[in-house]
Simulated assay, not measured.
Amino acid sequence: MKKKEVMMELGLILDTYCQDCLLKRVNQHDYGKCHAQRFCITECTVGDELKQLGKHLT
């Protein structure tokens, strides 16, 4: 995959799933921004997909 294609896919996923994510909003409100980001990276299936796409950028 080309970097431009990966960036487009990342943007699409973030806009579709992450922008209005209820889990992220609840975690931010209850536990803070750092906890919400950690949850997204380690436990969310969308976060796993983002990590896999990010590997193509390096």
Rank of each mutant, 00 (worst) to 15 (best):
K2L: 02
K3N: 12
K3W: 00
K4Y: 10
K4A: 13
K4S: 11
K4P: 02
E5T: 13
E5M: 10
E5A: 15
V6R: 02
V6E: 05
M7C: 14
M7P: 05
M8Y: 10
M8Q: 14
E9F: 00
E9A: 13
E9T: 05
E9W: 03
E9G: 02
E9N: 04
G11L: 15
L12T: 12
L12R: 12
I13S: 01
T16R: 08
T16K: 11
T16C: 08
T16P: 00
Y17S: 04
D20A: 01
C21T: 03
L22K: 06
L23T: 08
R25H: 07
R25G: 05
N27W: 03
H29T: 14
D30I: 06
Y31M: 10
Y31L: 14
K33W: 07
H35E: 14
H35P: 05
H35D: 15
A36F: 06
R38W: 08
F39A: 07
F39R: 04
I41Y: 13
E43L: 12
E43K: 14
C44D: 07
V46R: 02
G47D: 07
G47A: 07
G47K: 03
E49K: 14
E49R: 15
L50C: 12
K51L: 04
Q52R: 15
L53M: 01
K55M: 10
H56Q: 11
H56P: 00
L57N: 00
T58Y: 09
T58S: 10
